[in-house]
Simulated scan of single mutants.
Amino acid sequence: MLALRLARGSHPLVLLRRLFVAAASAGTGFLLLSALGHAAGHPTAAGDSLARLLWCAAPLAATTQLAVSVARTDPAARLQRGMTAAGLGPLRLTLLAAASTALSCVLGVLLSLLVFLRLRGDLGGPAVVDSDPDLLGAGHPLPLPGALMLLAAVPLAAAAATALSLRPRTEPGYRDAEPHSITAPTGLPWGVALTAAGLAVEAYTSPVTDAHGGVLPLPGRLIGSAPGVLAGWALAALGLVLAGPGLVYLSGQLLCAGRPGAQRLLSGRVLQEESHRLGRPLGVLCAVASGAYAAVTVYGNAPSRSVGPLTAIGTSVIFACVTASALAAALESRSARARTTAALRRLGAPASVLQRATALRAVALTLVLGPLTWTVAEMATLPLVH
């Protein structure tokens, strides 16, 4: 009840972010229900239904990441003055944030269940997708307990990840569950190694393109995917995510190289300090952009393969979630620097200096992450188009 009351009394922008989490949960829930509908309509094709279900892991992970990012920027999840005396310590605030995240996700998955049942015609009236019965399994009974169990995975995963991310920290040097230091992240070598290993696995196991351009089917046309290619893509994406904090730190080092002025030094130090906070969401964004570029390039050479509606839904959910997560991380970083920004303003720093420093950080990140993302995408595409 407390989580519901806090949600009702939140700022409109906070409510908008929670509604975005609910919308992402609805899209992921619809994909999970589509996999269940295919299994209900094709009881003998268990392998195909399992493959459809496994493809839902990417939207589920993206939705979970977005839910965690939104929870971290929620003012209600921060320990304020007087909360401990009222019985809301760090542990209870963490549980409250997890409950609020679960509530938003439950609203989304229930909406997806209603839409799914309406499209199948289970709520009365004609089925909307009767022209394509394989899409949602229309005309076949849907096991409601199984549907509810599948849908429960979304709020449970989001709530568990939120609780893990916002858990109370007792180590010295932590504020708002993030280390505020300028120590270099240690994941860059591991990220580079995993990316290289993923590209090597993909090159070794990629199938030869047939006469009709048949390569790596996506969700909706996903049956027959080469496991080695999928494993290679997953390793390369994981490598980019692990290397993200180190790449952000490297961007800050490049800004501070040579004899930097006050503006370059300020921008570089901010990137180095915020590399732990910004690195993972930006790494996920680079991984998704790399995979999208590779998929567009590969399927541009295979016009005989069409992209199904489930592919469009899954891609939209993933892109929207990772982009919003990166923006939420930037907002969290800005909130964490609020005292420093206020101190600079009191010292007489004009607003234009701070704006130019922000633009300089964006340019540095683009120059470092952009070419790397394009290179990984090109190398991942080469074995599939030649």
Rank of each mutant, 00 (worst) to 15 (best):
T315A: 15
R361Q: 09
A357V: 12
R346W: 10
S335W: 08
F319M: 15
S335P: 05
W374K: 01
R337M: 10
A359I: 03
A338R: 15
G370D: 01
V363D: 09
P350R: 05
I318Q: 07
F319E: 10
I318A: 04
T358M: 07
G370S: 03
R346G: 03
T358W: 09
A326M: 06
S352T: 15
L360D: 09
T323H: 08
L310W: 01
I318R: 00
A351L: 08
R356D: 06
T373G: 01
R356K: 04
E332C: 07
A329W: 11
L354H: 02
E332G: 11
L347H: 03
A336R: 09
L365R: 07
W374S: 00
A364K: 06
W374F: 02
S316W: 04
A336K: 06
A328H: 12
A320C: 14
T375A: 14
L360G: 04
F319C: 10
S335K: 07
S333P: 08
L344E: 02
E332M: 07
W374H: 02
L365Q: 06
Q355G: 06
Q355S: 15
T315K: 00
V368D: 10
L310Y: 00
R337K: 12
L327H: 12
L347R: 02
A312F: 07
A343H: 09
G314S: 14
I318E: 13
G348E: 06
R334T: 13
R356Y: 03
A377Q: 02
A320D: 06
A343V: 14
R339W: 07
A357S: 08
G370R: 00
G314P: 06
A328D: 15
R334W: 10
A330C: 10
A357G: 04
L331D: 13
A351D: 14
V363K: 11
L327S: 13
L365C: 13
V322S: 05
R345Q: 09
A359D: 13
T315H: 11
T366L: 15
A324W: 00
R345E: 09
R361S: 06
R339V: 13
S333E: 06
A377W: 01
F319W: 12
P371E: 03
R337D: 13
P350K: 03
I313T: 05
A326I: 04
F319L: 15
P371V: 04
P350M: 04
R356C: 00
A320V: 15
A351K: 06
G314A: 15
Q355V: 12
C321T: 05
V376Y: 01
A312R: 07
S352N: 10
A364Y: 13
A342S: 07
L331T: 12
A312N: 04
A364V: 03
A343T: 15
R337Y: 05
A357I: 04
A312T: 10
F319N: 12
P371C: 05
